[in-house]
Design a protein around this nucleic acid. Sequence first.
DNA 1: TTGTATGCGTTATCAT
DNA 2: ATGATAACGCATACAA
Lengths: 340, 340
Amino acid sequence: MKNTPVTIKDIARSLNISISTVSRALRGMPEIHPDTRNAVLKLAEELDYQPNQLAKNLAKSRTKTIGVIVPNLSYYYFSAMLNSIEEAALQAGYSVLVCQTNESYLREITNIQNLMRSQVEGFIISLSRDTDNYEHVERLVRKNIPLVLFDRYAESINVSKVIVDNHAAAFKATEHLIENGCRRIGFLAGPTQLVLSNQRIAGYKAALEKHDLWAGDKYVFHCDYTTESAIMQTLAMMSLPQPPDGVVIISDRMAFSAMYAMNQKGIRIPDDVAIVSFNNEPVSALFSPTLTSINQPIQEMGTEAVRLLLRELDAVDENVPKETKVMETQLMVRGSSLRK
Amino acid sequence: MKNTPVTIKDIARSLNISISTVSRALRGMPEIHPDTRNAVLKLAEELDYQPNQLAKNLAKSRTKTIGVIVPNLSYYYFSAMLNSIEEAALQAGYSVLVCQTNESYLREITNIQNLMRSQVEGFIISLSRDTDNYEHVERLVRKNIPLVLFDRYAESINVSKVIVDNHAAAFKATEHLIENGCRRIGFLAGPTQLVLSNQRIAGYKAALEKHDLWAGDKYVFHCDYTTESAIMQTLAMMSLPQPPDGVVIISDRMAFSAMYAMNQKGIRIPDDVAIVSFNNEPVSALFSPTLTSINQPIQEMGTEAVRLLLRELDAVDENVPKETKVMETQLMVRGSSLRK
DNA sequence: TTGTATGCGTTATCAT
DNA sequence: ATGATAACGCATACAA
């Protein structure tokens, strides 16, 4: 397996010129003679010369690369965000390195380390489900490494953030169920350490209180983001002495599981119980019944995350004030919440 | 934004020793004195020293990195493959760089270039939907760059491959429908340039011919892997004078769209038309009705792809014979194909 | 056990 | 317009 890549040195030697001239020609610097430039370009083409990015980055002490860390790319939300981030980064001349934590706190730490070793200039991170200690992130802040958190964040970390108004979204979702005749509304939430889950619970509670329907915590169930636990918690909820006639669910994924469980039990949606959830995955519009869901402006969130990061990356002075961008959500009303 | 990372030079200076000693201590070479080693390690820890991977790779002329290129990480199949590949690569001491083509031929070319510039030592690639010219891949082969194709491949490219027996899988799926009483079976296929789609059509045809049910190409419809076209093609198929009573669909994603379209038309599944598809996405087991689907051993396919690649990477001699690993598939029978 | 010197492929600062 | 030469951060062969 011998593949010795061709370098500017090779080109220089075979053209009998210096490597600096080759380097300049390749980069299209104006001072060099058209003839030599053409000769260099032609030979480079012939030899299929590919610049060594490592050497380039080392020499310039700049990588123009940002690191993106997400819980799991198999969640639609994150792979769509990645696409959006990549596009925005590309336009700004940056490339991205992606890592998944698989929802593990330890992986998150090693991912950050690896990306640091790869000399990324900044980070865009969505914290893992299991992350309840933020020292590894605080360390980046202390080192003045530009960092933007999105979706899964923590209040206490002083960085720029791109998030949605989870309270308002949950409020809106809950009120929608109320308007459609639901009177006992449950909440299938995520793990208790998840900020966004707790915010949504708060919004849900606020809506119920406003309409004088709050019946206490007994209608709030927590799952750990797996299919199995979603099914179990759903069955538990529907086995209450007075089962809910409406349920707000933390994500479409969990809603799919919940609906499956209800189907098995012969519970009809939306007639027996209406459902609203979060994320508006494409499949939701195809599910049967189609799923009412809160949409997040993924495209803009990605663009915004990159914008906030670039702002810090490009800053000449030391102190760019941190900014938290709160995006609006939209309720996509579909079959699962519409009583005839 | 000034963050000057600490280097071995910094450590050397502040300990009044040479950088080579620091380098050795950090890498735990046996020859160095325990006292100095400890001093170095301690200071490195204090300063939160992170080795510069770029410099390291450049110095060793090895990156221990493999490049993975897939059409789109929002397809469950590919993100699951990525997870499996990453795990296997990690165990072998390699890290991976991921790129998405978004099904674009041009992006595929630039992705390969970028990864080459990043000095990846080998590739694991699944071709994009739009790729119908293989010159960019052949070029890698000519340069002796280790490469493994999976899922979306081309016969003509002489490299190692990890694929499933698409013909057999489609045959199995089709025969399953026949056994469940279907007599007019349609096929909702993918784009015509996709090898795997054509192989599945062939398997489907073979099964129909075996049972003397082949009615000609008029029951084969092609979609371009978008929801819209899947819906349109489904409606077209179901508008045939003699609509099918069973349909084989190229992927679960397309099946979701097809089922949605049928639902809209009041066509009952499986009573009016039974459905079988490919990929066995987790959601398929939750869909209503649950979807019968061909399962691919994703975990093993990822492991196998990495194994085949490492085989070439580690080869001292020039010629490792290419190997094509054909994996077995499994029909997961669920509600969409079971007539009562 | 430790230090010196050289190289990895490229850019950048001097000269010429 | 072009050529030497010194970085960039690290590894390593060779000396000491």
